[in-house]
Amino acid sequence: MGRVGTDSPDVVRLWSVKKTYRTAAHEVIALDGVTTGFPAGTFTAVMGPSGSGKSTLLQCAAGLDRPDGGKIVIDGTDLATLKETALTVLRRERVGFVFQAFNLVSALTAEQNVSLPLRLAGRAVASAEVRAALARVGMAERAGHRPSRLSGGEQQRVAIARALITRPAVVFADEPTGALDIKASREVLRLLRGMVDDQGQTVVMVTHDPVAAAYADRVLFLADGRLVEELNGKLDAESVAARMTGLERSAC
């Protein structure tokens, strides 16, 4: 299935990835030769001014959108070698997604929402496995509740359990705290951090919030579709915010 030989420790690797959106009036270069990797068991935040290409980077890296050039490998598989059906299977089995809007099915209970990826894949659903996934995110007691009876933070925790149920190689989170209040945001961020520290999960998160980014192991900064800076090590919201302010001033 397009597997490539590599000694790279990266679960996801991008080489010279380019993406351009064209309209009748003009074209926008969303990604301009991006090369980077996301090592196993790490938490990476992706930041940048509006229009910098961070959402496009996530969509291409996750196989949701195909780049115009370059190469993307997920868990040893070159995405360019996959036809659409095989790409859908790879996303379903090897990639987890957490979105700002939760994307839970309103007619299903928390337990049914978490088991949905397994059902779609035609895999047997063990109730104990689903309950264990909910327990890991602190939602075991709410398994029988539909989304309308859950708070925003609780819905996002169910969404995280759903993302983890297939034991993905990588979890991509797109502004996962954007619709939450401060308390719920911190709970979700601590949960994502714990997935990395305790379970060795690889997490890539797009965010505009320096406080959220400070939970990561490193922060990648984009501007005009290019990677322009990287912060590593012990991060704090103040240093992340200072870098973002510098990029936003440069973009003006």
Rank of each mutant, 00 (worst) to 15 (best):
K83G: 15
K83S: 11
E84W: 00
E84C: 05
E84D: 15
T85V: 11
T85H: 06
A86F: 09
A86Q: 07
A86I: 00
A86K: 04
L87S: 06
L87M: 12
T88M: 04
T88N: 09
V89K: 14
V89G: 14
V89R: 14
V89I: 13
L90V: 15
L90F: 01
R91I: 11
R91T: 09
R92C: 15
R92N: 05
R92P: 14
R94Y: 00
R94P: 03
F97P: 15
V98M: 15
V98S: 02
V98G: 04
V98K: 03
F99H: 06
F99P: 07
Q100Y: 03
A101I: 04
A101K: 15
F102D: 02
F102R: 00
N103P: 12
L104K: 06
L104P: 06
V105W: 01
S106I: 00
L108R: 02
T109N: 08
T109R: 05
T109Y: 03
A110V: 12
A110R: 09
A110K: 02
E111M: 09
E111Y: 02
Q112W: 04
N113M: 07
S115I: 04
S115T: 02
S115W: 04
L116P: 02
P117D: 09
P117T: 04
L118W: 03
L118N: 11
R119D: 05
L120M: 12
L120K: 04
L120A: 10
A121T: 00
A121W: 07
G122I: 09
G122E: 07
G122Y: 12
R123M: 11
R123E: 01
R123C: 00
A124C: 15
A124W: 10
A124F: 13
A126V: 09
A126Q: 15
S127M: 09
A128G: 06
A128E: 14
E129H: 08
E129Q: 08
E129M: 03
V130R: 05
V130D: 05
V130C: 05
R131N: 13
R131L: 14
R131D: 12
A132I: 07
A133R: 15
A133F: 08
L134P: 04
L134R: 06
V137I: 01
G138I: 11
G138H: 11
G138W: 13
A140I: 10
A140F: 05
E141V: 12
A143I: 13
A143S: 14
H145D: 06
H145M: 08
H145N: 11
R146S: 01
R146A: 13
R146N: 08
R146F: 04
P147W: 07
S148K: 07
S148E: 13
R149S: 14
R149C: 05
R149G: 14
L150Q: 13
L150Y: 14
L150G: 11
S151A: 14
S151T: 11
S151Y: 11
S151C: 05
S151K: 13
G152F: 01
G152A: 11
G152Q: 10
G152R: 07
G153M: 12
G153R: 00
E154T: 10
Q155G: 15
V158E: 03
